[in-house]
């Protein structure tokens, strides 16, 4: 393993922002894979996964360097500054680095960070991004694939996770890291899991295992693995969005990942002063809770749940 400082950004009173990479295998050997940890400073699960990967691969490389066939670069995070202040976005101006890609070396600070990160990561065969959901929800671990007409969704089965969410890019995606990787011909996958600002070691372990499995299937490393799920490729058409009809105290009755049946009560919303029951949220279909609102106070029309519909195939 080679630990390197990929780039730095100076600050007035703090130590410079240092973005570190951990490189395994021979530089420029193929196939190659870059793994980028959380861009937002509240992706604790993702930071955990990335640092466990560094630790695990370092141990394996010490034991037997010949297990590494291709090159792997892990960048656990590009945003230590935000992590150290418990902020999601860039501490100075609250901008999201993940809307600055491919970046601009002559531009604003976060555009320059994006440009430097992109320059270090845009020449790999595979590019993985670890991400917490950006909205107020926690979710099961899944692979997100931007459907640009290639076979990435099929290839995502090599992670062995239960669900692969394939969706068409929107205008917002055009400035994201994963989209720009694709434009530059890397096979790009985003692994989404958990809840912002918290650590779930169980779900994080699933993502960790999925990445090791993927690296083995792609013959970048050679390690024994268990086979896992074949993966269900789903689109937005397979997802039922359930909103809260009212604002108040949100009491969820089911965890994410739970199988629910049509008609089952899945949450209650109470009046926050007099305690009266305002609404019982009912599952509108059979399926699996893939996402759940992550805060005990809920707004009217906020998305309370997403359910992946269980549908009979004809």
């Amino acid at each position: 393993m080679k630990e390197e400082i990929l780039f730095e950004i100076a600050s007035l009173s703090r130590e410079p922002l240092r973005v570190k990479g951990f490189r395994f295998g021979q530089k420029d050997s193929t196939p190659s894979c870059v793994i980028v940890g959380p861009i937002a400073g509240n992706g604790i699960n993702q930071l955990w996964i990335a640092s466990r990967l560094v630790n695990f691969l370092r141990q394996k490389e010490l034991e037997n360097p010949s297990l590494f066939k291709g090159e792997i670069l892990i960048i656990p995070t590009v945003n230590p500054y935000s992590f150290n202040m418990s902020k999601a976005f860039w501490p100075m101006d609250n901008t999201d680095i993940d809307v600055m890609f491919p970046g601009y070396e002559q531009g604003e600070t976060t555009q320059r960070i994006a440009a430097r990160l992109f320059e270090k990561t845009n020449n790999f065969d595979y590019a993985l991004l670890l991400e917490a959901r950006k909205d107020h929800s926690e979710c099961i671990p899944y692979v997100k694939v931007l459907d640009t007409g290639d076979d990435s969704a099929e290839e995502a089965r090599d992670f062995g996770l239960d669900f692969i969410h394939s969706r068409k890019p929107t205008t917002h995606d055009t400035v994201s890291l994963s989209y720009n990787w694709k434009i530059w011909n890397a096979k790009s996958f985003t692994l989404v899991s958990g809840k912002k600002g918290s650590l779930d070691k169980g779900d994080s372990r699933k993502v960790f295992d999925a990445i090791i499995r993927f690296l083995c299937k792609k013959e970048i490393i050679n390690l024994p693995i268990f086979e896992c799920s074949k993966g269900n490729i789903i689109t937005n058409e397979n997802i039922e969005v359930i909103k809260s009809g009212t604002a108040g105290l949100f009491d969820s009755l089911v965890p994410v990942g739970e199988h629910v049946i049509h008609g089952q009560p899945i949450a209650r919303v109470y009046h926050s002063l007099d305690g009266s029951l305002l609404q019982t949220i009912i599952a509108p279909c059979d399926g699996i809770i893939s996402c759940r609102y992550d805060y005990p106070l809920i707004f009217q029309n906020a998305i309370a749940f997403r359910i992946i519909r269980l549908e009979s195939k004809i």
Partner: peptide, 8 residues
């Protein structure tokens, strides 16, 4: 007044 590299 406080600026980083790149601040407009």
């Amino acid at each position: 007044p406080v600026v980083y590299e790149g601040s407009l």
